[in-house]
Computed example of a mutant assay.
Amino acid sequence: MAEGDGVTTRGIRIRLDGTATESDIGALHKWLEREKPLEELVRTGRLRLHERSRTDETGAPMGIGMEIVVALVGAAGSVLFQDLLDQVKKAVQAWRDNRREVEDGEPPEGRVEPVNLDDR
């Protein structure tokens, strides 16, 4: 295996605010898996989506205690990573717009930010 193959060091963390439910996390995860061009990257194994427990700085669980991490597999240039970050932000907004149309109440706010996965 070449250096960097299969290595995930850069990722994107998606956190929904305290009004989010487990159903919201699952629905957003599925939405991201089907969103173009993310779907192609997931299908080819270049992108992985994980749900994981989150904690605040003191270690206490926040809200439902889950976040979604989008991990780019292998070496990726900063331009590709920025494009992916922009696409994920658009996908989260599209999910919020869709949820607003199909469910009662305001959807949870989402925060999308780059994260170094080596610091987990």
Rank of each mutant, 00 (worst) to 15 (best):
N116R: 13
R46S: 11
I12V: 09
P108T: 03
V102M: 10
E67C: 09
M1P: 11
T44V: 14
T21H: 05
K89P: 03
V7A: 14
T8L: 12
G45S: 05
P114Q: 03
R54C: 14
I25R: 03
G11M: 00
N98L: 10
R48T: 04
P61C: 06
V102S: 13
A71I: 05
G110C: 04
N116A: 10
P61W: 04
N98G: 08
D119Q: 15
R52I: 06
A91Q: 02
P114L: 04
D17S: 02
V42Y: 03
L16P: 01
E103Q: 13
S78C: 10
E113S: 05
K36G: 04
A75F: 15
V102W: 06
Q93E: 14
V112Q: 03
R13V: 10
S23F: 12
R13W: 06
V73I: 10
R99K: 07
Q87P: 05
W95I: 00
E51Q: 15
G74Y: 01
T19M: 09
M62E: 15
D86I: 10
T55F: 14
G45F: 05
A94V: 01
E33V: 05
R120S: 10
P107Y: 02
G77C: 15
L80E: 13
E101R: 13
L84Q: 04
E40T: 03
L28I: 03
E22T: 07
V69P: 02
E22K: 15
G11E: 01
L16H: 01
S78E: 15
A91H: 00
I64Q: 09
E106Q: 10
L16S: 01
E109V: 12
L28D: 00
L72P: 03
E106P: 03
T44F: 08
D119A: 14
T21Q: 09
A2S: 14
R15N: 06
D118N: 14
H50Q: 12
Q93W: 08
I64T: 11
Q87H: 10
K36V: 11
N98T: 04
A91I: 00
T8Q: 14
H29N: 11
D118A: 13
